[in-house]
């Protein structure tokens, strides 16, 4: 059952994306077949997407896949990794590269129970040194190592 419902959720999500694109896209100029406006292509595409997503939704209900443990959502790593990337984005904007590396690696290691802070800190230090050598020194990209505020 779990599989079917996740498939349905994704199909619904896709239909939602299509519907949003359709609504927003229909505010653009459609034009004519000769001189297609900016809205023509997106509107056609999003309509097709909605139809396909509905078909997939129906098929998810009709044609049930056998239950499969690999199709369960692993919430812990999902949230940990996504927040690690988000954390990197926020930290590099305000504090620079080195703090951002500590944040991204630290949050990533929350994916597993009992990772421990020691290996996380060691990994962060190694990554910082490696990235500094590689990007700043070798490739000549002056990335903001430390900064405060915007």
């Amino acid at each position: 059952m779990k599989t079917v419902s996740l498939r349905l959720v994704v199909a619904a999500l896709l239909a939602g994306i299509g519907l949003t694109a359709l609504v927003v896209g229909s505010t653009y100029d459609l034009g004519s077949a000769r001189r297609m406006g900016p809205g023509y292509f997106p509107v056609v595409l999003s309509a097709v997407l909605v139809l396909l997503a509905l078909a997939e939704g129906v098929s998810a209900i009709v044609k049930r896949d056998p239950e499969n443990p690999s199709s369960k959502v692993d919430w812990r790593p999902l949230l940990a990794i996504l927040s690690a990337v988000a954390g990197f984005a926020i930290t590099i904007a305000f504090f620079g590269l080195i703090p951002a590396f500590f944040v991204v690696i630290g949050l990533s290691t929350l994916s597993e129970r009992g990772y421990g802070w020691k290996p996380a800190v060691i990994l962060s230090i190694i990554t910082c040194i490696g990235a500094w050598l590689l990007f700043s020194q070798l490739l000549g990209m002056a990335l903001p190592l430390f900064r405060l505020g915007l």
Binding site: V85, T109, E112, T127, L143
Partner: peptide, 29 residues
């Protein structure tokens, strides 16, 4: 265990450095 945090960090810095864009990193999320 030791690979994935570094991979995620490298993905972040790689995407960021393409256009020095924080926005692009949030797209990764």
């Amino acid at each position: 265990k030791y690979i994935y945090p570094v991979v995620i960090a490298l993905i972040c810095i790689g995407v960021f450095s393409m256009r020095t864009s924080v926005f692009d990193v949030s797209l990764v999320v």
